[in-house]
Simulated scan of single mutants.
Amino acid sequence: MEATLKTLGLAPEEGGPLMPERLTFADDGGIPNTRLPTLLFRSSGVEPGLDRNAVADCFEQLFARHGWRPSWRGGVYPYHHYHSIAHEAFGVLSGRGSLRLGGEQGEDVDIRAGEVLVLPAGTGHCHRWASDDFLLLAAYPEDQRELDLIRDEPAEHDAAVARIAKLSRPEHDPLGGELARWWP
């Protein structure tokens, strides 16, 4: 695992734990967001010479080993949406892009190859821009096999909040850290 993290530019400095940036977003009445922080694991850069299929293999192995089922490769929809029955993780396979997190009044976050984003259920996300080679791998906790897609809809809000409250939390983040450390 250490070698794979190093290959992706995610090896922790000085042997300590891998520390993510933690971002929180307020409920805006349409997109619930959550008190749980979105986690952004920054990469120092993937090993030179790796193509996106090799990066995908690394992420698929890491994510699966830690209870996050790799699901699809692609981009993010260009409209604000969230999921109420699954947490979601993205591994950036290639390129660079920017996502608006937290809804229309949220924050733009730039991501690049090798980085990992973990969105707790309810967190709004939307594609802002991307390089031509931008590609993500999405993964979901093993016990969260279904995926809904809810747009910024106040009429859906309360039912979605109730579903999110019942959702389990994985033991580990997709890179193997204790998730309870970030999601108390």
Rank of each mutant, 00 (worst) to 15 (best):
R42H: 03
T38M: 15
P48Q: 03
R42K: 10
S44K: 07
N33D: 06
S71V: 11
A56R: 15
P48S: 04
R22M: 14
P37D: 05
S43K: 08
I31E: 00
R22Y: 00
E47Q: 15
P48E: 07
E14M: 11
G67F: 07
P37L: 02
R52F: 14
L62Y: 05
D51R: 11
G30M: 09
D27Y: 11
L36A: 06
H66C: 00
G16Y: 05
R52I: 01
H66P: 00
P37E: 00
Q61N: 09
D57W: 10
P70S: 11
A54N: 10
G45K: 06
T34G: 15
R35P: 12
P20D: 04
L62K: 04
R42Y: 01
T24G: 06
G29M: 07
R22T: 14
T24M: 10
G15P: 04
C58E: 12
G30A: 15
A11F: 08
P20K: 00
L18C: 05
A56G: 08
E47M: 13
L39D: 06
E14T: 12
R69I: 06
P32W: 00
H66R: 00
M19A: 14
A11V: 09
S43E: 06
Q61R: 15
R69V: 05
P20F: 03
E14L: 14
P17V: 01
L62D: 01
F63L: 08
L40M: 00
M19L: 15
G16L: 04
L62T: 05
